[in-house]
Simulated scan of single mutants.
Amino acid sequence: MLQVQPTHYRPFLKWAGGKSKLIDQYIPYFPLSFTNYYEPFLGGGAVFFYFCGVKPDANKFISDINPELINTYCCIKNNVEPLISLLKTHQLQHNRDYYYKVRLHWEGSEIERAARFIYLNKTCFNGLYRENLRGLFNVPMGKYKNPTICNEDLLRSVSVAIQSAAVSLKPYDEISSKNEQDFVYFDPPYYPLSATSSFTTYSRYVFKEAEQIKLRDTFAELANWGVKVMLSNSNCAFVRELYADFNIYEILASRAINSKAEKRGKITELLITSY
């Protein structure tokens, strides 16, 4: 019998903490079967795009609390060609002054906002997403000689992948999944390993100890319903204690966000499953 190779999809955003390089390590821990896939901390969506290729028939539900991120996914899904046109304009005008001018202004149509989001993502420091208390993006420009701001083929490929997904703006604890055919993957802001490594303000909403405990409670509630639940987090005593009742595995990862290059390197993270 002819073996049909799965379509390979990949993220269109650079994303701090993205899982593209960890997928091969995750594969042995993914459930063997599921009908519905939920990814509520969407970010760059590496695991979602992986399943778009290998499980095209699964129902997929992706969400996040970041309105600009979700608007961007929706625009790629519904209006990719106008979005590409705007990104070409950003590509032509890109320089330091232009970056900070664009960063300052978030007004505009949904497509204009999506184009700004991708432009800033491709040109900011390390693909980091951070907001101030007013909800304004405040990451400085990265040091890239010739950043690829408009990858037309990739954006069209992503648009195809997202067509079959339900995209929504909502918090992780509003998942409607409650049966054994559901698989939920949580990739929250990681619990900091130290005070200097802390990055819990992915948006204006912080994600500290109380939020980590609330997430664990949601994880346990879904598991009690028979849902297959997987979660990524930092390898530390606090997280290990939180999820002591579940399966905990170590994953080898790279530390990319640090102001000092010598402190970037291999570390271990945790992958936790309910099954």
Rank of each mutant, 00 (worst) to 15 (best):
F34R: 09
V139G: 01
N146C: 06
K101D: 00
K60A: 09
T148C: 10
K170C: 11
F49I: 09
G108M: 13
A161V: 12
M141N: 03
Y129D: 04
V102Q: 14
L32P: 11
H94L: 10
K170R: 15
F30S: 03
L128Q: 08
N66T: 09
R103K: 01
C52P: 11
I149W: 00
R130I: 05
G135H: 03
P147F: 00
C150Q: 04
Q91H: 09
G44D: 05
S159D: 03
T35F: 12
E81Y: 07
S159G: 13
L86N: 07
C124A: 06
Y37V: 10
R113G: 01
K77H: 07
N126I: 03
C150L: 05
I149Y: 01
P40F: 13
H105K: 04
Y37P: 10
A115T: 07
S168D: 12
R113K: 15
I84Q: 08
Q91V: 10
F61L: 09
C75A: 12
V158H: 14
P147S: 01
L92A: 04
D97H: 09
S157Q: 10
K145Q: 13
R156H: 08
G108L: 14
F137R: 01
T35W: 06
Q163W: 05
V139A: 02
I111Q: 11
D57F: 03
H90K: 12
Y98I: 01
L133M: 10
H105L: 13
P171W: 10
R116S: 04
N126T: 02
L69N: 04
K77M: 08
C52V: 09
K122Y: 06
Q163H: 05
F49D: 15
R116L: 04
F30R: 05
T35I: 12
I162G: 02
V47L: 15
K55S: 13
C74P: 00
F137Q: 05
T89H: 06
I76V: 15
A114W: 15
L136H: 02
Q93N: 06
L87F: 05
E68V: 00
G108C: 14
V160G: 02
L87T: 03
Q163S: 11
I84A: 07
S159R: 11
I70K: 07
I62Y: 08
F41K: 09
